[in-house]
Amino acid sequence: MVVVMFFVITVALFPFGVGPESNILARIAAGVVWVCAMLATLLSLDRMFLNDYEDGSLEQLALCPLPLEIIVLAKAGAHWLVTGLPLILAAPILAMLLNMPAGGYLTLFSVMILGTPTLSLIGAIGASLTLGARRAGVLVSILVLPLYIPILIFAVGAIDAAAMSLPTRPHILFLAAILAAALPLAPWASASAIRQALN
C-alpha cells in the first residue's frame, strides 16, 4: 500500500509543478501516470530478493529441485501482484484527476495490464544483479530505468493515439511482444545473476 501512496503523491505533485491548467494536464496525463508508476515499481524492487538473500532462504530456494528460473518467475509474479495490480487499479483514478481525455481510459487500462508485468520482470534482473552491492537502491534505478524506456514509449504512444482516436494496435502489439520476450528471458538472466551472487 505504501507503493500506491507513493504513486498517488508523486502524481499529485504535477499539478503544483506545472500549474493547474486542465489542458496542459490533459496533454501530459498519460506520461505522468506512467513515469510515476515506473518510479513506484522501482521503489519496491529491493524487497524482491534482498530479505531472502540476507536471511539465507534464497540459498535454500536455489537448492530445491525446482529450476531457479521458475522461482524467479514466481517472485516476479508475486511482486506484480502486490505492486503492479494496485497501480493498475489506481491509475484510472489518477488519470481522471489529471483530466485525461475520455478516449484514453480503456487503452490506459490495457497498456497497464500489458506493461506492468514487464516492469516486474525487468526489475527482477536489476534486483538480482545488485544483491550485496553497495548503495543497491540507487544502483538499481541506474540499471533498470534505461531498460524501462521502450515500455514507456509504447505505452504512452498507445494512450496518446487513443486520445486522438488513431489506431492503438501497433503500440499494444509492441508492448505484448516485449512482454512475450521478457517472460522467458528475464527469469533466465535473473536466475544466473542470483547463482553468481550465491557462490
Binding site: 545488485t130 552491492a133 540499471l143 531498460l147 545473476a193
Partner: peptide, 26 residues
Amino acid sequence: GYMALIDAFDDPTRGQRAASILALVG
C-alpha cells in the same frame, strides 16, 4: 550502468560477473 555496477561490490570478481550479465541484457 555497467561501470557503476562493476565498482559496486567489495569483491571485484562478483562485480565483473554481475556487470557481464548486465552487458548481455543491454
